[in-house]
Design a binder for these strands. Sequence first.
DNA 1: TGGTTGAAC
DNA 2: AAGAGTTCAACCA
Length: 621
Amino acid sequence: MPPLLSKDKGKAKVDIPADLTEEERAALIAAAEARQRSFERSFAGPSVGKAGLIRDQTEINKVIAEASKGSKYYQNQVRKDKELTEKIEWYQAKRDDLMKMANIPRLESEADRILLEVEATRDTSQVIVHVDMDAFYASVEVQRDPTLKGKAFGVGQGVLTTASYEARKFGCRSGMAGFIAKKLCPHIILTKMHFDLYIAASKAVREVLLQYDENLMMASLDEGYLNITPYMSSHNMTASETVAHIRADVEAKTQLTMSAGIAPNRMLAKICSDKNKPNGQYEMNFERSVITKFMRDLPVRKIPGFGRVTERCLEGLGVETCGDIYTHRAQLLVMGHWFGFRGLCKAYLGIADNNVAPGKREERKSVGVERTFRDKVDDEDILNEVASIAEELEKDLERLQYAGKTVTVKYKLHTFENKTRARSVGKYISTSKEILPIALELMKRELPVRIRLLGIRLSTLKDLTVTDKGIKGFLTSPSKKRGTSISRHSTPTAIDDDDDMPELIRMEEEDEAEVLDMTFDEDKSESDSSTPPPTSILGKRKSSEKDKPHLLGPVCPICNKALGPGTSNLGLNEHIDWCLNKDAITEASKKSPIKKAKIEKGVPAKKTKEKGTMLEWLKKK
DNA sequence: TGGTTGAAC
DNA sequence: AAGAGTTCAACCA
């Protein structure tokens, strides 16, 4: 069937075939409208949908889309949106195909088995806090210039990095172009950035936070994670008391307010810190049943790492909330094979990393400089820019004390398409003298071009401050062995009189009933885990499948999985069927329509590679 | 492994 | 008239 849907001028257009029922018509129209909304949403800045909205967002989105129209940026968005839409439609067709033949109960029970495995990794023994400064840059700007207080203003020249809360009321937010913000809020004041001030303020905040957890993990200048478990016990305080105290302390010492989320892991803590956003805190109940209920209604977009593209892909499969992940588990398992599926399971179950450790400096992977400017076409102009950027990069490398082996030049065409060209050399380099020739060579090969951005990045780094003695690591990071999943068993509170059985197996046997109760709890708000169901729906399964195949039933020749002792030949065949389908989709995706189109256009240089299966990027975190 | 691209924060 | 810096994952040759 030809594409039914097209877009035009902010209106969702639908060409409806004559021979459809009313229901089918309605569904088509609804789908087109949803897509249009999603598209408009894409102009409102990357953070839309994460935070609560004050004014009617669809209204705002319309204004934004209107103001954007005609710009090259907009056209680029249209192009990307079209590609994404095509991809999603293609995958939907594939899914429908697969699901027609799939043995759904078996898919579901396989999904449930994975859910169970993931559930076994749950750890609620640590109290993790995510702290998030309120409109950080904007607040610092107010300190710099108190006349800004109470006004609608934004920080950043071309693009707002932050909007004051007053400006947010008009729909202005970070990531938004300045001129769009002006459209939404004509009286908005736009200020320059003052990075040195933000760094200083961040440092002041960090000093305070470190008193509550010396392993404080700063995720950026304005947010960080703490494990307050030790502090709570040594001070005999509850979590919310501790966090209230921290916030008051930070405010007293820096005159900056923050919001905080309290939860058993980083993901949940981050979501929670958003809940009472300006100057508030939210503590999540650590009960498993409460957590899963919380996740059930949570839009997937709220999960850190799930951005707009992921949101749209999932939406295309009918998944909008984390709860939908469970109801759609069969499809999701077929589409993104179980690696990606695990990440979704973690989202659904509210399970994530609870490790809090300071970022170590040698973890930096690259250093780069890039600049945006008015379109450049003149070769000499461009090469001069390369040289100037190389100079700046040298300064950064000097300041940060790094050398590296891989030089990457990046440029953005006037159409907003990005390109990168890289080359590695045999020794570590760090000066412009060394970098520039490589960068120039890389760039010369691309001429002539019309570009709006140029950048150079150095990677494969070596930290020049480490003295090669190896002792340094001991001195700088003493005891950070805390707050891992092991600690679950470190509390000797009569968990189990069990022997030294491997953890996985023990977990499965002991927790299975309980976990099942939870896993299948689509509507269990009444009774809780205290009464496990008498029989297991899943086939008994050990984690060490290979060891005793005879006890585990037949083994699938495709995926090498034991299928459980009760599996009949019929069951085996069915498993093989869908297992093959899994591979089929990976295969087929290589011939996805997008790629074909590119090849047919005979533009091999423009290679737009396709992802494998759609959800593979939803990998574990 | 190195090069490219894209998503996300 | 739509930024800058960084990490990560996937795919490919």
